[in-house]
Amino acid sequence: MNAFRLVGDLCHLAAIVLLLLKIWKSRSVAGLSGKSQILFGLVFVTRYLDLVTNFVSPYNTIMKVFFLSSSIATVYLIYTKFKATYDGNHDTFRMEFLLIPCALLAIVVNHEFSPMEILWTFSIYLEAVAILPQLFMISKTGEAETITSHYLFALGSYRGLYIMNWLYRYYYENNFDVIAVVAGIVQTVLYCDFFYLYITKVLQGKKLQLPA
């Protein structure tokens, strides 16, 4: 474990907690893409199948349990409890356009052709693009609530910090996973446009508004 990865995991944790706080306090899922949350749930389910078979550390297990349960809870809140506030008309990104290419790529490009490893690879590829429905929805509505933009900033930062973690592990632990690194770079690049808007607008106290 290194500081980059620890801070990255804490950013990820903060993002998920921020999202749950937003939903619970505002009693609304307005502006949230249920599709992205479904994809994130799928990412955790397919990645953490080794939760019981492969013990890494208490920290690893606790975080996996929290990520799994919180992502499933978020999907539940969006599609059942606060369904009345879910803005389905703007959450129209076709998930199959992400699921099918990620599945095919995971079958073709992986470290080992075994079910667990292909599912892990699928989860890595899917995580890289899972935020697209949310970013697409913001581009359609033209704006995002401030707390939603904090959520996105924390979520985008987590994988950016992981890139530094991979650099660190490459130089000091001689550990390198090209699949995770390439997907992680793609994932972080997808947030760049949002990062620019967040830093130039939200941090200036303005609402996140996309140029019409």
Binding site: H12, R47, N60, K64, E117
Partner: peptide, 10 residues
């Protein structure tokens, strides 16, 4: 099964 495939990251 090449055992360096233990994924120790979240």
């Amino acid at each position: 099964h090449n055992h360096n495939l233990v994924h120790d990251e979240l």
